[in-house]
Design a protein around this nucleic acid. Structure first.
Lengths: 245, 245
DNA sequence: AGGCGCTTGTGAAGACGTGCACAAATCGCG
DNA sequence: CGCGATTTGTGCACGTCTTCACAAGCGCCT
C-alpha cells in the first residue's frame, strides 16, 4: 500500500508520464471525487462502488465511471474501486503529489479570509507569500505569514518557487498584478477580482466571482416566481434541481 | 430613457412576462456582460458593438450575439446595442430589478469576508441577516449587522423575506443549515462548504469551492510541466488559454 | 434617393458532454 | 468447477454549446 510508483505511463520507464489529456469537464469533477474519497477513507472504507462514490460526489454514476475510465481504469469489476489507490491516482493526475506554492496578492477583505482558509493547506497547497501594494498593510502578520510588498514578487517567486498566483485585489489593480505575476513566470492564476484578465498564451486563468453566482441564483428565483404565478400553468411542476459547477 | 415598461412579453399586457427559458450557459454569462456594460456606461459609452462588448466580457462575439438574441434582440444593425437599454434588459431577466435579501449563515473566516464584501450590495443584493450556530459569535457586529443565532432563522426569514441563503459554515454543519434554510422557504442556496448538499426538488444549489479551483489549476500546471519536459516534443506549443467558468 | 459600409441576428455544422444500456469481467458459493 | 450476483468499462444516441459564415437591416454620405 506504500510502494506504488506512480503509474500512468505503463510503457515508458523513467520518462515523463505523458498525462492523458482529459476532457475539461472531467478535470473539473476530479477534485470533487477526491474529496469524497478522502471522506470514505476516513470512515474506514477500503473499496467503493461507482454507485456509492457518485452519490457521495453528487453526480451520475455513469458519468463517474466514464470520468475515471479516462485516467486508466483502476477499478475491479464486481467489486468496485480501491479507495486508497484511486486517491493516489487522482492526486497524481491533478499534480498534487508535489505541494504547490501559492502567492496571494491583495490582503483586503477577501484576501484575509483566503489567507486564513485551511482548505488550501489540507488539499496540498501552501500559501507561501502574502502580498499587497498598500504600504500600510505591509508588515501585518496573518496566520503566521507576514504581508510583504508586491514589488518584492520577483525575489519571492524564485525563493519560494511560486507556481500559482491568487489575485484578491480590487478590479482596478488586478490586471497590473496579473502582469507582474506573469512576468515572474507564474502560469496559473486564480482571479477573484470582477474583471477580465488579459494574459499571454500558455497562462491559465480561472475566475471566481461571488456576485455572479448570486446573480445566477437570482435568475432562477425570478424564473421560479414567474412560473408559480402563471394563472393557468401547472404551478410548481418540475423545476431544475441542483446545478453543476 | 426612463419609461421602459419592462418588455419581455409583447403579447400579454399586465400578465407575468413569462421569461424565455435561456440556456444555462447563457445565464451564466449574462452577469459578466452586465458588469462590462456598467463599466462602459460609466465611461460614457452610449452604444457598443457586439465586438466591443464581447472583448470587454472576454468571450467570442458570435457567442455574445447569440446569447443576447435569446432575450429578444435589443440591438440595432449597423450601430450596435444601446448600453442603457441592454443593462435594463439583462437586469430584468436576471431578476435584479428587485433587491433580493440574502441570509448569510456561518460567520467564520470566510463568512466575515463575505459579510464585508461590497460586491454584493453593488450588484443588487442586500445581506439582510448574519447567522451562526456558535453562541460565542452571536452578538458580534460586522459591517453594521449584528450576528444572530441560526435558530432565529424562521422569524428572520419572514421579517426580511429572505430569498437566498449563503452557507459559509464548515462542511459538517452545511447539510443541517441547508435543511433549515429549505424549511423556512428558501429556494436558492449558494454553498461555500466543501460538501454535497441534498435538497428537495425545486431548490437550486450552486457550489463554490475555492480549493477545487486551485486543484484544476494544478492539473494544468502539471500537464504543462509534463509537456515542456517531453524530449522530442514541440515544447510550449499551443496550450489552453483562459478557461470559462 | 441611392448606394455603401457596418453590424446584428441566425441557419447550419461541428465539437463536446451526458446518460442509457449492455457486454465483459470478477468474486463468492455451492 | 460452474453459476449467479455484482460491478466496471464503453459503444451509441441524444442533447447542448460553440463557431463560422452570411443574409438582412440600418444609418450615413453624397
Amino acid at each position: 500500500m506504500s510502494q506504488h510508483r506512480h503509474p500512468g505511463a505503463p510503457g515508458r520507464a523513467g520518462a515523463v508520464p505523458a498525462l492523458p489529456d482529459l476532457p475539461e469537464a472531467t478535470v473539473a469533477r476530479l477534485p470533487e471525487y477526491l474529496r469524497a474519497l478522502h471522506n470514505l477513507a476516513d470512515s474506514g472504507h477500503e473499496t467503493v462502488s461507482s454507485e456509492g462514490l457518485s452519490a457521495a460526489a453528487g453526480v451520475n454514476s455513469a458519468k463517474l465511471r466514464k470520468d475515471l475510465s479516462h485516467l486508466g481504469s483502476y477499478g475491479t469489476r464486481g467489486v468496485g474501486y480501491d479507495v486508497a489507490l484511486l486517491i493516489e491516482q487522482i492526486e497524481y493526475v491533478l499534480g498534487l503529489t508535489q505541494r504547490r506554492a501559492v502567492a496571494l496578492v491583495g490582503v483586503g477583505n477577501l484576501g484575509h479570509a483566503l489567507a486564513g482558509y485551511d482548505g488550501f493547506a489540507s488539499r496540498g497547497f501552501r500559501i507561501a507569500a502574502l502580498l499587497d501594494a498598500d504600504p500600510s498593510r505591509v508588515g501585518e502578520e496573518i496566520n503566521g505569514l507576514v504581508v510583504r510588498h508586491v514589488d518584492e514578487l520577483p525575489v519571492i517567486a524564485v525563493q519560494e518557487s511560486i507556481a500559482i498566483g491568487v489575485i484578491a485585489t480590487p478590479a482596478a489593480a488586478a490586471q497590473r498584478v496579473a502582469d507582474q505575476l506573469v512576468a515572474v513566470g507564474v502560469t496559473s492564476i486564480l482571479n477573484f477580482a470582477p474583471c477580465v484578465l488579459s494574459v499571454p498564451e500558455g497562462v491559465d486563468v480561472r475566475k471566481v466571482d461571488l456576485a455572479i453566482e448570486l446573480q445566477i441564483l437570482s435568475f432562477h428565483e425570478h424564473r421560479k416566481a414567474s412560473l408559480t404565478a402563471l394563472p393557468g400553468g401547472l404551478a410548481a411542476t418540475e423545476t431544475q434541481e441542483a446545478i453543476g459547477t
